[in-house]
Every structure is written in C-alpha cells, then in structure tokens.
Design a protein around this nucleic acid. Sequence first.
DNA 1: CAATCAGGGTTGTATGATAACACGACAACG
DNA 2: CGTTGTCGTGTTATCATACAACCCTGATTG
Lengths: 265, 265
Amino acid sequence: MTLKLDKVNRGPHLSTLVASSISREIAQGRLKPGDQLPTEAALATTFGVSRNVVREAIARLRSEGRIWSQQGRGAFVAESNNPTVLTIDYETLQRADSFRNLFELRGILEVQAAALAAKRRSDADLKAMGDALSGMRAAPYGSVAWLRSDLEFHRTVAEATRNSYMGQFLVFVSERVRESILAAGNQQKSDDMARITLGEHERIFAAIRNGDVEGAQAAMRDHLAGAALRVGLHDGEAAAEAAPVPEVPSPVRHSRLRKAIRGQA
Amino acid sequence: MTLKLDKVNRGPHLSTLVASSISREIAQGRLKPGDQLPTEAALATTFGVSRNVVREAIARLRSEGRIWSQQGRGAFVAESNNPTVLTIDYETLQRADSFRNLFELRGILEVQAAALAAKRRSDADLKAMGDALSGMRAAPYGSVAWLRSDLEFHRTVAEATRNSYMGQFLVFVSERVRESILAAGNQQKSDDMARITLGEHERIFAAIRNGDVEGAQAAMRDHLAGAALRVGLHDGEAAAEAAPVPEVPSPVRHSRLRKAIRGQA
DNA sequence: CAATCAGGGTTGTATGATAACACGACAACG
DNA sequence: CGTTGTCGTGTTATCATACAACCCTGATTG
C-alpha cells in the first residue's frame, strides 16, 4: 500500500511564515492602506530571520498586489483592495453555499462559452471535441481517462470561443469545482450515468457543430443541471453537503523562529 | 493642466521578469508537469542574475502553485495545471485583441450578474445602488468621484447576486479593464456622454428594482455596448482599434539582462 | 545480502557589500 | 524671496559568498 503523504508538507518556508504574518497584520487592520511597512532590515531583526527571507516574503505580497514598494522609499500597503491575482480559498470552498456559488458561476461561464463556441468554432475545434467525445465513449465511467476526456471536451469548447480569457477563467473555476468534488468524494457511479452524461455532451456537441447558439446554451444548461444533481446539489436554491477537510499538522523545522512568528500574530 | 505620469513605473523587478519567463516556459509547454527545473545556480547564470533574484522568482511561482520545491532535491513543475491563483498579464492586455476578449468576458459576467441581481436583490441592495447613482449625478463626468461611484454601482449589482465569487471575479476583471483604459488614456469626455451613461445606469437600476430579469440583462448589454464605443471598441465582431498603448520606455537599468530575458521568450 | 555511512549535489538561510533611487537639508544664485 | 544645484542619509534592489539542512547514490562494512 502506498500511503499518501503528499500535499501535506504545505511549504513552511520561513518566507511563507513571514508573508502570512504581514498579511495578517494587514487583514486585521493593524497595517492600514497607505501605511509604510518597517524597513526590510527592521523586519528581519524583529522576525529574527535574514533580510533575504524578508525580501522573498515581500516579493510574494507584492506579486499578490497587497503591497507595493519603491526603491529608495520603502514598502507600503496597497491603497485599494485591488489584488492583481485572484485566488480561491480552499477552506472557504468546503462550505456548501460557497460551493454552490462557485458552481453557479461556472454554469454562467460554460453556458455563454457554449454560445460563443457555436458562433465561432472552426473545423479544428469540432475535430478536437469529437476526439474528446470518443475518448469518453472508450473509457469506463468515472475512470481517470474518462475524467480527462470530460475535462478535455469542456476545454475544447472554451478554446472554440476564441477568447483566451474565457478559457483561463473557465479552467480555473472548473478546477476548483472538481477539486472540491473529489475531496467530498460523495459521488455514486452507475452505467446509467455514463449513458446520460455522454448523451448530454453529444447534444452540446451537435448544437455547436450546427452553429445553433440557443441550442448550445440549452444543452449546456441541461448538462450542468444534470451534473449538479449527480454531485449532490439539489438544483435551484438547495444546499449541498461537502465533507470538511481534515487538518494536517506540518512537520517542525526551525521551531524557535516559527514560535516567535506565530506568537506575535 | 495636470499631466498624468503615474502608474508608469509598473514594477519591472528582475525577479518579476525571471518569474514571467519561467511562467511562459510552463504555459507554452516547454516545461511539462513533473519536469525538474534547472538548479537555482543554473538559472542564475542563464538569466545573468544572482541566485537571490532567482529565488524570489521561484518563491513567487511557488506561492502561485505553479511549481513546488523540496530542499535537497530541486524544483519541479506542479503536476496538474492547477494554479491556485488566476493572474492577468499586464503586458498581454496591451494587445488590442486581448483587451477586447477581456471586455467580452466582463460583459458576460455583468449581464448575468444583472439578471441574478434582478432576481435576488434586497432592499438594502437597492438603497446602495441608488446611493451610487446619486453620487454619479453629483460628480462631474470623468472625475475621480464619478469613477468611484460608477465602480460602486457595478459593485453593488454584483453584491446583489448573493454570489460572492461573482463579485470577486467581476471586480477582478473590471479592475483590469479599467487599468487598461486608464493606461491608454484615449477617452474623450463630453457632457453628452455624462447624460447618456447616467441614463444607461438608471435603466439598469430600474429593471433590477422591478425584478425584470430580461430587462436588466438588456439594459446592461446596452450599457456595455455603449461603454465599448466610448472606449474606442467597435461593438459586435469588428476589431477594435484600441489605441496601442505607447510603449513606455522603462528607465534603463540592467538593460543587458532585460534584453537577455526578453529575447529568449 | 543488508545496513551504514561518506560524498556530492541542491535548496534554505545568513551575512556583508555595492548600486540605484528618494528625500530632505543646505548652500549658491538670481 | 524663490529657485536651483549639491550632498548626505536612509531605503530598496541586486550581487556575491558562505554555511546549514537535506536528498540521493554508491561504496564500504558487518
């Protein structure tokens, strides 16, 4: 048996701890927008780490848009909560209503993507979709290969919109949804479902091939409604039950510093 | 006259350039999931920067979930194309077709958000929207206060969807669009536009207040079509002549290195 | 054959030094 | 008095080097 210990060692680098610590200061309002952070040297001594570590932490916060810095002046808390990156908190997603919201957003994107795809698809797109469908027919329902083909089909639809951002967003949202479903692990499989799911996909494909915008939207909407049911979401306004994720303890290294950092939070 | 020279110094830190470069390698498939990256020392020499810079770049990519690293072994491209964050490259957005794509995506989200808002808005939501509209009436067109009120109105609409992810995504996309418009700076203002824009907002507000889903969608669609024109995008399928943003010559520092990095993209 | 251990390679961290830049103080100048 | 030029100080950005922690491999040893 292969134990699964991966994904556990969620990188407890020092820079991560420092970044989290500063992040908390900002989130809890002890550092207000526009405020200047202490100098790198000062942060290094207060945290008891090297200036290098502080710099990596600041680089990270800067890339997240939380702070900005200018050579010769200092680092400052960003004015507006205007993050340059969009991130979805894994823990939040465990809440049923959050999951339903994300599923709703995915639905909106998928349906409109289907509409655009029906308008703009090229022959190459149609071939790619067809290949993905073949892959789904060949693989057993729920297998890895099947899932890959499923994802592939949706990806090709997104691609056919000729809008790369549509693809990016869709993939991002779908991935989060998929993760959450896998974590919950409460999906029952059956041969019936295989047939039904495949049929839904084929209707989407046909509509897109025929350039039937409304049909593609409708077919995609049906597919997502079906998927919602299969995942345990009552359609409409009802809530889903997602299993909470177990807390994972992180291995202890640099315990002295960590304690110092954690302590002052 | 107040010249606008801010926002130009978009942080071209070396670590940013290195991170972008590696990111591209991954996105374009030259580095496949599971692949091991060159060692930090190797990257440092190939990029012609210090190992410290490389480390900051890697720290950033790691925090974005694109790669993971283990002490003593090396850094590896993350298995699933499972970036935990979604980012929009500022440079890419300068291309007219990219901007049009993002604008299209924004439109989709706004229109559907308007629909959901018409279904789910509460009295508090309506009051907030009304306040935002008042703010727009009071402020001169194009002023900072006006822009703030405009943003505020759209934010309240997103809020009324009762779907926090919708709000997050919408704000994120809108911010990028707004930044790009400001950077281009090719918007002409007139009193007519003030009246027209305000009227568009009021129609959206009215439809949402009346719970008119289709009307809200239509009004929002009109508003966005208008906004597209005002920004210089031809509506529909026509290509946009978004004035290509003037290349901002970043003050020359480390020009040799930059060239090397840019060159190998 | 199995366990141990030595060595090299790699990342994580520390430290010091230098360059680039911002800002205020202050003098020189009109 | 106001403006401009210069300089010194403080800060970030980058470089360079060294060491610690850790992984992997392979030889040594019992």
